[in-house]
Write a protein that binds this DNA or RNA. Structure first.
Lengths: 242, 242
DNA sequence: CGAAATATTGAATTACGTCAAATAGAGTGG
DNA sequence: CCACTCTATTTGACGTAATTCAATATTTCG
């Protein structure tokens, strides 16, 4: 039994901007179904021309890209509400792979309907572009992180970003949230070695800023952490949910 | 005297996909004017809510982002045909600054007309999204470069990418093209120090793969360079021109 | 319970950054 | 055209943040 869009619990989260009744009704028609996957399941493959697009409804995943020599870059972490497959939908080829890290529920759309969305509901097409702009914005920040921040600054930045996303999705309780990734995932997302990632996390823990173990992230002092990260602490603004 | 879109010399380049007569006529109305700037001129400021969007018509520029501690990350290099200001247009805030590095001519659009573009010409809205997806794709590759490639691999990758963009724009003659940036720009784009950038370029020159001096890039062996870069050499597909 | 990930720690190594100084151009003004 | 300044490039020496190697816990899971 697939959830009806108008009852979608995601819509109510702070993270997302509201839709009109009309738009919700349209999305219901656009929605082709739901997909449920287990941890480790590949959802989209780099270079593939997938016929389907997704929105993550629950669970977490990862966007990653592998070089010919086997090195892996984690592009970012996928949280509920994230739109998956834009590149396949438009360019006809994914620049990265997407894989589930927990049990995930995904809203499924047909790529063939995608153009129709722009034509009949330009406001929703506008929203897709909005999301693309948000992603571009985020990737620019990530670039600055990997390129210019030290390991400690980068790790602090990453944890703050993750925590803020968690907050907007009501995933945080008592300054804690589930973070079901491995240190290897985190290392590959920041361009650090696994060993140094581990030691950098220890350092943040020693300083009583944040700790992440047993798949639980705890932030003790968000503003101090942001200070270490050389970043500004401003709330992410609401974004559309596709 | 501003150029009419239908005579725009950019449209004919391999880099871009063709437009219908109708679409060109519409773009003509959408176009608010032209802007000419000198080297060093800031075009958009990080954090600003600019009322205007641009497409680069000629010349080159740079997208960059500066951290609170003064470190600078070059997000990418701006070539003719690049769309500028998507983030301001949608999110109301640029995530990076844009600055001219040569004399540049820019096509100017009003942000207030932007929504209208999606509404009345969904195909053009679709194209804007296409460009956003291309950018996202590129930033993902850049992330993998800074995060996973060595200095030599990264430099080789950057030069191949630039050269390919140049080729698609007919900027290459005799395996040479103008590349009016400084080594500092390049260093900040790859997250390397200036000194190491210089030494890495020397190494590529010693190996007879590529040389870049006096603002001219020369590629001697593109496929060998791509091999050093651990990358695949496939032609960039045509993309829309806004 | 055993096997395979994952996490942790110490020691050795290195790719890269920093410092410093020389050289080379590019632009300005007299 | 020549001083002058400013920016960009180049090179050598040295320092270090981060990688790699290696070994040992610890957890996860079939």
């Amino acid at each position: 039994m697939t959830m009806e869009c108008r009852y979608c619990p995601l819509r109510r989260k702070d993270a997302f901007s509201p839709l009109s009744q009309d738009e919700i009704a349209f999305m219901q028609k656009f929605k082709a179904g739901e997909l449920t996957v287990e941890p480790g399941t590949p959802i989209l493959m780099e270079g593939s021309n997938a016929p389907q697009l997704f929105t993550a409804l629950s669970g977490m995943g990862i966007r990653e890209k592998t070089l010919a020599n086997g090195e892996r870059q984690v592009i970012n972490f996928i949280f509920p509400g994230d739109f998956i497959g834009l590149q396949a939908g438009l360019l006809g080829e994914m620049g990265h792979s997407v894989e589930a890290r927990t049990h995930m529920r995904l809203c499924v759309f047909n790529r063939s309907d995608f153009w129709n969305l722009f034509k009949t509901h330009p406001s929703r097409g506008f929203d897709v572009t909005w999301l693309a702009a948000v992603e571009e914005h985020f990737l620019g920040e990530t670039l600055a992180t990997i390129g210019q921040r030290t390991a400690l600054q980068a790790m602090a930045w990453a944890l703050v970003k993750i925590f803020q996303r968690g907050e907007a999705l009501d995933l945080v309780t008592n300054n804690q949230m589930a973070l079901p990734y491995t240190q290897r995932d985190m290392a590959d997302s920041l361009g650090l070695s696994l060993v140094h990632t581990n030691k950098t996390l220890s350092k943040l823990k020693d300083r009583q800023l944040a700790s992440w173990s047993d798949k639980v992230l705890q932030i003790n002092d968000l503003s101090a952490l942001a200070e270490v990260a050389v970043m500004n602490l401003d709330k992410p603004q609401p974004r559309p949910l596709i």
